[in-house]
Design a protein around this nucleic acid. Structure first.
Lengths: 336, 336
DNA sequence: TGGCCGAAGTCAAGCGCTTTACCACAATGG
DNA sequence: CCATTGTGGTAAAGCGCTTGACTTCGGCCA
């Protein structure tokens, strides 16, 4: 920086003002400085910058991310959005045994300026800790209590309503919802299936449709038992809304053997999956695709906005899933 | 730090020597310092540390990670291993247009101490740039030219041989290999399918078996055409080795409709997939599972070792995939 | 004409550590 | 008994920036 200053015949401070755009500088001076910077290949040192400004320009993304399927997009787009604004995203492994200490040290030790938290539970200890520690944070997801909290999340309620509407429009009167049974897993209390179940029950009730809910554990036994269970406890079902990927695929391959063709006899539509997963099946699943990239970016941007002092009201963004057509959804069969 | 020093009645340097274990200190003094640190809840500031020591203790993981399926494990375990050693992993989006500048600045600007590179192509520009920039780096994957390069990778050659052996042992004489056709994609030149194809051809030749290779593009059309193509161009095939997840699942659901039961009439075994993907199908796929966690960790550890001066010979680690049984592999049917 | 003002720059004091040189002292050996 | 070596500790010079206080100077108004 000193070299740049000397060569451009200005002070070191002026160089700083130029590279940071932090105080007005006459166009000529600025031009001169920028040119010298270019000639010399100068790059400012992040550590020194962080030390002097007391800002690390690092966002911590807390993991473990237990749900391995749909997180890629969030992470990737958050990292990109951060980078575009001069921040960087680090993966922060949070061990559940000492959440409090770790969160405090993360911020207090000046390592990260703010935190991104995914896979939020309805009542999430980590959120309470973040508030206590006064750490700037943004959720990708929602807790039960939302006052004053910045979050971006999938609009499961609206997506579910849309899906039910769409199916109703196709003539379906008997729907089923398939959810992952998370009891006893670390993800018990994970909000999306809970919100979706409630939205589903309300939606079918409001429209006078029948709706059965199946909670299916993640093990192969429970999954392969589903088709039989469906046939016995809700045989008149003509459309399934599924948030359980393994179950969706299992249904798709098991039903034909029972003489049920998809989508001729039964429609299946999934919620919150990725298009690439949907494409793995035959026929490709009709999917309300999780807007991962949009949300990851929105979260990073919201956090940075907070960090840079635009305080205003909380950012609270809900994005519904968009329908990725596929070929597993069709009109209801003529009623027996 | 000054406060700690005062209260422990030592100099600030001694505190530093204690927290970093960087110069001998008598047990009593050390104890005293550590206790004060605990009382005061002192945590050293990363930015200051980085500035003074000229080490950021940050590893950059270059992405885009184009292959979205199996990367999670690498990333996660690398981040964890780094954290255990006082390093952190940041996601570094590398735009292909200015690879050279970006890689240079990454290291020169002191942001990261070293680089982890995934999804390596056989001839990879980024690797050349990293060498030129004298950046410490470790590959997860392998280029063609390997002299003096640190890498950890899946041992596709050995895994393929093992798979072929296993199938031969089950009586299969007519094998097929299904690969993703990556021509025209950003991943053209991606090493794993190339190495696997070669290993497969050699393995079947060495054992006097028949082996047909199918290159299947990623689009739904090509994938759903595969069963027919298989039937017409290699009808006697009794075992398929697949590195193409979508194709594996498609085969599994399409073959029964052609009267071919898996594994009774045809065995399918996949290479380099994750167990969770394998579990999505019915029957669950028999899989040589990618050792993602092992490799991510090994890569981070190798990089840190380099950074901390243990220079010695290059770390070159190959880990074969282990068989995750599943239920899609069985003895060859009696020959017609 | 003098006083005032704003705009463009400069000065210099840190930011919170690491690390090299150095010091005091005790033990050791010839 | 003195020189040598080793041991535990301190002093202080940075690391490369940011930033608030200060200077300079030309214009403008009364």
């Amino acid at each position: 920086m000193q070299q740049v200053a000397d060569r451009a015949k200005v002070s070191i401070s002026t160089v700083s003002f130029v590279v940071n755009n932090t105080k007005p500088v006459t166009p000529e001076t600025r031009e001169r400085v920028l040119q010298v910077i270019d000639e010399l290949g100068y790059r400012r040192n992040r550590a020194a910058r962080a030390l002097a400004s007391r800002k690390s320009r690092i966002l911590a993304l807390i993991y473990p991310m237990l749900d391995h399927r749909n997180n890629h997009a969030f992470v990737e787009s958050a990292a990109t959005a951060a980078e575009e604004r001069g921040y960087n995203l680090v993966l922060w492994p949070l061990h559940s045994d000492n959440v409090t200490t770790e969160i405090a040290s993360l911020i207090e030790a000046g390592f990260a300026d703010g935190v991104l938290l995914m896979e939020v539970q309805l009542d999430d200890e980590r959120v309470s800790r973040l508030r206590e520690a006064q750490a700037p944070f943004v959720l990708i997801g929602r807790t039960r209590e939302l006052a004053g909290i910045d979050y971006v999340d999938i609009d499961f309620e609206r997506t579910t309503q849309t899906a039910v509407d769409e199916l109703a429009k196709l003539g379906h009167r008997d729907l089923a919802l398939v959810l992952e049974d998370l009891r006893g897993t670390p993800l018990a209390g994970y909000a999306p299936p809970i919100r979706t179940e409630q939205a589903f029950r309300e939606a079918v009730a409001a429209r006078g449709l029948a709706g059965t809910v199946f909670h299916v554990a993640h093990d192969s036994g429970s999954i392969s038992a589903l088709p039989a269970e469906l046939a016995s406890s809700a045989p008149q079902t003509t459309a399934i809304v599924s948030m359980h990927d393994a179950a969706s695929l299992a249904l798709l391959s098991a039903l034909p053997r029972r003489g049920i063709e998809v989508p001729r006899d039964l429609s299946i539509v999934t919620i919150g999956t990725t298009a690439s997963l949907a494409a793995l099946s035959q026929p490709p699943l009709s999917t309300y695709e999780a807007p991962g990239h949009v949300l990851g970016r929105a979260a990073a941007e919201a956090l940075i906005a907070r960090l840079e002092g635009r305080d205003g009201p909380a950012t609270q963004v809900l994005v519904p899933c968009a329908l990725h057509p596929g070929a597993s959804m069709g009109p209801a069969p003529a009623r027996a």
